[in-house]
Lab assay of single mutants.
Amino acid sequence: MDSLVVLVLCLSCLLLLSLWRQSSGRGKLPPGPTPLPVIGNILQIGIKDISKSLTNLSKVYGPVFTLYFGLKPIVVLHGYEAVKEALIDLGEEFSGRGIFPLAERANRGFGIVFSNGKKWKEIRRFSLMTLRNFGMGKRSIEDRVQEEARCLVEELRKTKASPCDPTFILGCAPCNVICSIIFHKRFDYKDQQFLNLMEKLNENIKILSSPWIQICNNFSPIIDYFPGTHNKLLKNVAFMKSYILEKVKEHQESMDMNNPQDFIDCFLMKMEKEKHNQPSEFTIESLENTAVDLFGAGTETTSTTLRYALLLLLKHPEVTAKVQEEIERVIGRNRSPCMQDRSHMPYTDAVVHEVQRYIDLLPTSLPHAVTCDIKFRNYLIPKGTTILISLTSVLHDNKEFPNPEMFDPHHFLDEGGNFKKSKYFMPFSAGKRICVGEALAGMELFLFLTSILQNFNLKSLVDPKNLDTTPVVNGFASVPPFYQLCFIPV
């Protein structure tokens, strides 16, 4: 009986604490739906499609509103004006990374994606500088992407125009580009180590996009005490870190300090320079996690976009025909596509942009946080508050993009057929937390897609009208449904 009384008292205290925290903070924060004790607004949000729920709530509470995930307040920004004001106009104040408990377990605050403060700034600055020195957006990395595009075309030829699921092959190409940047090595598509790495990356994007992960991140005790797919994700990350550590040891034994070959060499050189400046942010643990982040951000996002792009091109054969006509006119058949071609191919450029806009790969991006107490639109948001960005509300804005739910390359073309930029184009987020590999991803999408369409016609196994382009999961990332196609050599 005594234990029951204690339990009831504990629960009562928890409920009172929950109510007090919510009521004391709500006077400062933007308005929002009334949260339930302990669980907050979790029942009012469709976990399978958070973005749709945010759109519905914005119609009631406006472009800036507050939700509670458990006891934790989260300020939501919906629509271009609110997102721009926060991420661009007040970029420094909104540059923090929001709480992501599962990532905390995986990387302990290291790396480039989930770190904060001085650690994040130094690692991000170093990573950007190193990638630029190796030619991100310049010639040397373009050579690597072109080489991988040629290998991709050869792998597709091996399908002999038979029906195939493109998931694996389209994942190999961007993964190999990242391998060449980090390890100075590309792998054969049949290499077992490479296959294991690909498998872990593919599993992780599916797990991260599941409703279960949303629950884990908002009720963090689940991570330590409950079984579930989150444990598989943590094991996959541990596998990748151990693999990278092996490569780091190989580099330490063979590195030429006067001739760095890749990202690992550059990081080890930085560690050597910083060894007298303790404590340094440049450690082996930081290198492991930064490399894992580059793999995660640079492989599955690009391969998922490529997979979605081919599905949309199957669905819209008239678009595919126009792209192939432009390829034939500008590039021809006797040389590989290059980035200089893009400025002469406005329709193809528009298609690449429209694919990214339409699929809305990361509907709410990753959570941000404010780095200080900030007054925002007459609300006071306390330091450390998590900020949720609705990228969907920007990419699918119906004023900027008429009929935003329709796939239409003319969203990025003017009346004369010239490519038209849009400030609403934010597939990689915006501001200080914009994806480090934005330029690389854009290069890969253009070169891989043009190389495929230069060499193959795409054949659907069903009537294009019957192809479903609805994402199968739409949590962290929008993942396309399973499909097969035939690559018919031109």
Results as ranks from 00 to 15, higher is better:
Leu19Lys: 12
Asn259Ile: 05
Pro33Met: 01
Cys372Leu: 06
Leu128Glu: 10
Cys13Thr: 14
Lys200Asn: 10
Ala86Lys: 00
Leu77Trp: 01
Met129Thr: 15
Val292Leu: 15
Pro367Tyr: 06
Pro404Glu: 08
Cys266Glu: 10
Ala350Arg: 01
Thr305Ser: 10
Lys52Leu: 11
Ser286Trp: 06
Thr371Met: 06
Leu294Ala: 01
Gly96Glu: 15
Thr283Arg: 05
Met339Pro: 03
Ser422Asp: 05
Leu388Arg: 01
Glu272Tyr: 10
Leu234Gly: 08
Val479Arg: 15
Tyr225Trp: 10
Val153Ser: 03
Phe110Tyr: 10
Leu43Pro: 15
Val237Leu: 12
Ile47Ser: 11
Asn202Pro: 03
Val248Ala: 06
Met339Cys: 08
Gly442Asp: 15
Leu233Ala: 14
His353Tyr: 02
Lys59Val: 08
Asn474Asp: 05
Asp191Arg: 00
Cys338Tyr: 06
Lys375Arg: 11
Glu93Asn: 14
Leu67Cys: 11
Lys59Asp: 07
Ala149His: 00
Trp212Gln: 03
Gly384Leu: 02
Gly27Asp: 10
Leu195Val: 14
Ser254Ala: 13
Asp265Met: 03
Val472His: 10
Leu447Lys: 00
Glu81Ala: 11
Asn204Lys: 03
Gly135Ser: 12
Asp463Lys: 10
Ser95Ala: 14
Met240Asn: 03
Pro402Val: 11
Phe376Thr: 02
Ile284Ser: 09
Ser429Met: 07
Ile213Leu: 13
Leu29Gly: 03
Glu250Trp: 04
Ser460Met: 04
Leu312Arg: 00
Ile141Arg: 01
Ser209Arg: 11
His396Phe: 07
Phe425Glu: 07
Arg329Gly: 08
Arg342Cys: 06
Ile488Leu: 13
Phe412Glu: 01
His344Asn: 13
Gly117Asp: 11
Met255Cys: 13
Pro481Glu: 02
Thr130Gln: 13
Ile99Pro: 09
Leu170Asn: 00
His230Thr: 09
Lys322Ser: 11
Thr364Arg: 12
Glu122Ile: 08
Glu288Lys: 10
Asn466Ile: 08
Val319Tyr: 09
Pro471Val: 04
Gly91Trp: 04
Leu87Asn: 08
Leu71Cys: 13
Phe407Asp: 01
Asp143Trp: 04
Glu92Val: 09
Pro35Trp: 02
Pro37Cys: 03
Leu388Gln: 04
Cys372Lys: 13
Gly62Lys: 01
Pro481Ile: 08
Cys372Val: 11
Phe226His: 02
Lys138Asp: 08
Asn258Ser: 14
Val6Thr: 13
Cys486Lys: 08
Asp256Cys: 11
Thr159Arg: 05
Ile45Ala: 07
Asp463Tyr: 06
Val330Arg: 08
Leu461Glu: 15
Phe183Tyr: 05
Pro402Ile: 15
Gly32Thr: 02
Thr469Ala: 15
Thr364Leu: 15
Phe219Leu: 11
Glu104Leu: 13
Glu415Ile: 13
Arg97Gly: 08
Ser220Gln: 08
Ser23Asp: 12
Leu14Thr: 11
Thr302Leu: 11
Leu19Ile: 12
Phe226Leu: 15
Lys247Pro: 00
Ile327Cys: 05
Ser422Trp: 04
Trp212Met: 08
Val473Ala: 11
Tyr80His: 05
Ile181Glu: 01
Tyr243Leu: 15
Ala441Ser: 06
Met406Ile: 12
Met269Gln: 13
Asn41Phe: 00
Arg125Asp: 13
Thr470Val: 09
